[in-house]
Design a protein around this nucleic acid. Structure first.
Length: 538
RNA sequence: GCCCCUGUAGCUCAGUUGGAUAGAGCGUCGGACUUCUAAUCCGCAGGUCGCAGGUUCGAGUCCUGCCGGGGGCGCCA
C-alpha cells in the first residue's frame, strides 16, 4: 500500500507540472494541520511556488485546486483553499483503514521498519565510563540514550555494533591501584585518590601483591564486571568491550603515529611530538601527540583507536556519544581522524548536555554521585529508561531524585505500559469468551467511525515518520513523545469504545479487535525502540 | 574574551525543520466505576514562548544584539 503522503505529494507535483511549474514529489511539503477543521492533510506549495510561477499564491492555489478536484488522488473528497493559500485536503476515512491494514500486515517486526541505512555498518560508542567505580545516574541516562539510538538505527536498516571503550590504563588506573592498596594497608589516601566507599569493598576482596599497577588492573577488571551487571540490570548489552590498554600497548599505536610522521604531518618542538592539526580543520594550529616525558597523549591513543574503528574494522560510520564536558576533544579528534586520511564526516560525535542532580543537601565534593543501582532499585529499570528518554539530548537535565522517587507511580512509563496491559487484558477476555479474530481481510474496518477509533489510527499513521526523524536526528525522545500520544489515544478509545460487550455487534467487535491489535503493534514497536518492557499485565 | 547547548503554563518538558486559535504530564479545583484493569477518562483554571530589533504572506522556530542558566577552550584523561 502506498502511503497517503506520497500519494498526495505525487498528485500535487503532477498538478504543478500540468500548470507548467517544475516540481517533484520530494519538494511538496505536506503536513497534518493542527486543527481538524483544516482537513486531514495540508500543503503550502502554493505559497512556496508562487514566486517562481509568476502568480499570486491564492491564484496558484485555485488552479491547483481545480486540477486536484478534476483528478482527485485516492481517498481525497475535497480540496479547499485557506488563509494565504494553503491547500487543505479532506479525506474519507478509507485512508485510515489502509493504515490499519498496513500496520497489521507489517506487524511488530516490519511496520515502520525502514531501509535508510541500506545495510551499512555503524558503530555506536557510548557510556565508556572509567572502570574506577560503579556507573552513576548520569551514566545510566546516556546508556539509555545510546542504546535507544542503536535500536533506532537497527530499525532503519543499519547494521549496528554497540561498543564500550574501557579506559583501563594510565593515571586513573594507577590512582585506583594506589587507593586500593592504601585502603587495604590502612594508610592515608594518596593525592588524587578515590575516596569512594566502593574502594573499601574492593580492598577487602583484594589478595594480590602490593603492586600499584597490578592492584589497579585487578580493581579495574573487577569494577568493569560490576558495571556490566549494572547495565544488564537495565537491559543494555554491548557487542564489544574495547580495552584502551589493548590498543595503546599494541604495535598499532606506533604504526599509526609512524604513518603520520612519514606523511610529514608531525614535527618535534620543546621535546614533544606535535601534529599539525590546522590543516585538518582544527581551529588550533597544533596538538601534542607525544609528551616530552615520552608518554603518548590521550589524543594519540584515541586516533589509533579510531584508525582501528574505521580502517581495521571498517565501520562505514562511527557515532561517539559524549557528555558536553568532552566538547574540547571534538576538534582535535576530528582533525586527527582527517590526518589519518579518514573522511571526518564519517565520524559523528553527539554531545549530550549535562545530567546533574538536584539534591542540594548532598555533599558538593566530587565523587559523590548517586549509583545507578540506587535509582533502579527504587523505581525499576523501565521507569529509569523512559525517564531518561523524555528530554531532548540538547537539554541539560537536572534530576531530582526525591521527586522522581515520589512520583514514580505517575511516571509516563506506567501510563504507556498500562495501555499495553489493557490490550493484553482484552485478549485474555476474548479467549475467555471464546471470541477469536477473523482474518483482517474479512473484518469490516469501515465500521470504525468513532472519533476515538480514528484517532488511534491517525497516531499509528505517524510512526514511520517519527522513526525516520528520531533516527536521523539521533533523538529517541521523539519516540517517547509519540508512544505517550498513542497510549493517550488508546486509553480514550478503551474508555469510550467497548470491544467485548453484549451491546457491541459481532462485526464491530471484529473490527475493534483489529484496531486493538494494531495499537498493540504500535506500542510494542515504540516501547521496543526505547528498550522498555511491554508487560502483559500490571 | 571566543565557541557549543539552552530560556515555552506554578514545576518538568514536547513543539512535525517557517504555518492557521502554542501542547502534554505533574500539581490545583470539579466531575465519571454493577461492563474488556479508575495505574483510566472528562472538564475548569493556568502563556507578553527571556528582552529588543530584523527577515516575509506568516516567527516559539531563521538572522543580529543584549540578559540569565549549563558546558567547553591543557605537554589532564
Amino acid at each position: 500500500m502506498t502511503a497517503i503522503r506520497s500519494t498526495l505529494a505525487d498528485a500535487v507535483a503532477a498538478s504543478l507540472n500540468t500548470l507548467g511549474i517544475e516540481a517533484d514529489a520530494a519538494s511538496v511539503h505536506l503536513e497534518r494541520p493542527a486543527r481538524r477543521e483544516h482537513g486531514d492533510w495540508s500543503s503550502n506549495v502554493a505559497l512556496t511556488k508562487a514566486k517562481g510561477s509568476g502568480r499570486p499564491p491564492r491564484q496558484l492555489a485555485a488552479e491547483l485546486q481545480a486540477q486536484l478536484t478534476e483528478h482527485p488522488p485516492r481517498h481525497v473528497h475535497k480540496v479547499e483553499i485557506a488563509g494565504p493559500g494553503f491547500l487543505n485536503f479532506y479525506l474519507d476515512d478509507g485512508w485510515l483503514y489502509d493504515v490499519l491494514e498496513d500496520v497489521v500486515a507489517g506487524g511488530e517486526r516490519d511496520y515502520a521498519r525502514l531501509d535508510l541505512g541500506q545495510g551499512k555498518t555503524v558503530q555506536i560508542e557510548f557510556v565508556s565510563a572509567n572502570p574506577t567505580g560503579p556507573l552513576h545516574v548520569g551514566n545510566g541516562w546516556w546508556a539509555s540514550y545510546g542504546d535507544a539510538v542503536g535500536r533506532l538505527l537497527e530499525r532503519c536498516g543499519w547494521l549496528v555494533s554497540r561498543e564500550y571503550y574501557v579506559n583501563d590504563t594510565g593515571g586513573q588506573i594507577r590512582r585506583l591501584g594506589a587507593s586500593l592498596l592504601a585502603r587495604r594497608n590502612g594508610e592515608p589516601l594518596p593525592e588524587g585518590g578515590y575516596p569512594a566507599g566502593f574502594i573499601k569493598g574492593l580492598a577487602a576482596a583484594y589478595d594480590g601483591p602490593d603492586d600499584i599497577a597490578a592492584a589497579g588492573r585487578w580493581a579495574a577488571e573487577r569494577t568493569l564486571g560490576y558495571i556490566k551487571l549494572q547495565l544488564a540490570e537495565i537491559n543494555i548489552h554491548f557487542d564489544q568491550w574495547f580495552s584502551q590498554a589493548s590498543i595503546e600497548e599494541s604495535p598499532a599505536m606506533g604504526e599509526t603515529m609512524a604513518q603520520l610522521e612519514a606523511g610529514g604531518l608531525t614535527y618535534t618542538e620543546d621535546g614533544a611530538l606535535w601534529l599539525r592539526t590546522a590543516e585538518f580543520g582544527d581551529p588550533r594550529e597544533k596538538r601534542v601527540l607525544r609528551k616530552s616525558d615520552g608518554d603518548w597523549t590521550y589524543l594519540a591513543g584515541d586516533m589509533t583507536y579510531h584508525w582501528n574503528k574505521f580502517v581495521t574494522r571498517g565501520f562505514d560510520r562511527v557515532i561517539n556519544v559524549w557528555g558536553a564536558d568532552h566538547e574540547g576533544q571534538v576538534p582535535s579528534l576530528k582533525a586527527g581522524v582527517a590526518a589519518l586520511g579518514v573522511d571526518p564526516e564519517r565520524l559523528e560525535i553527539r554531545l549530550g548536555q549535562m545530567i546533574s542532580l538536584a539534591s542540594g543537601r548532598m555533599s558538593k565534593r566530587a565523587g559523590n554521585a548517586v549509583d545507578l543501582d540506587d535509582l533502579v532499585d527504587d523505581i525499576g529499570p523501565d521507569a529509569m529508561r523512559l525517564l531518561s528518554l523524555v528530554n531532548s539530548p540538547d537539554q541539560a537535565t537536572v534530576v531530582d531524585l526525591d521527586k522522581v522517587r515520589a512520583e514514580t507511580k505517575e511516571s509516563p512509563v506506567f501510563y504507556v505500559q498500562m495501555a499495553y496491559a489493557r490490550i493484553a487484558g482484552i485478549g485474555r477476555e476474548a479467549d475467555k469468551r471464546g471470541v477469536s479474530r477473523v482474518p483482517v481481510a474479512e473484518a469490516d474496518l469501515t465500521l470504525l467511525t468513532h472519533p476515538r477509533e480514528l484517532e488511534v489510527v491517525r497516531a499509528l499513521s505517524e510512526l514511520p515518520e517519527v522513526v525516520a526523524l528520531a533516527c536521523a536526528e539521533r533523538a529517541p525522545h521523539k519516540v517517547t513523545t509519540w508512544v505517550r500520544e498513542l497510549a493517550d489515544r488508546f486509553h480514550g478509545f478503551y474508555h469510550d469504545c467497548y470491544v467485548l460487550h453484549s451491546d457491541v455487534p459481532d462485526e464491530l467487535t471484529q473490527a475493534r479487535l483489529w484496531l486493538v491489535e494494531a495499537a498493540r503493534i504500535g506500542l510494542g514497536i515504540g516501547l521496543g525502540l526505547l528498550g522498555v518492557a511491554a508487560p502483559e499485565r500490571m
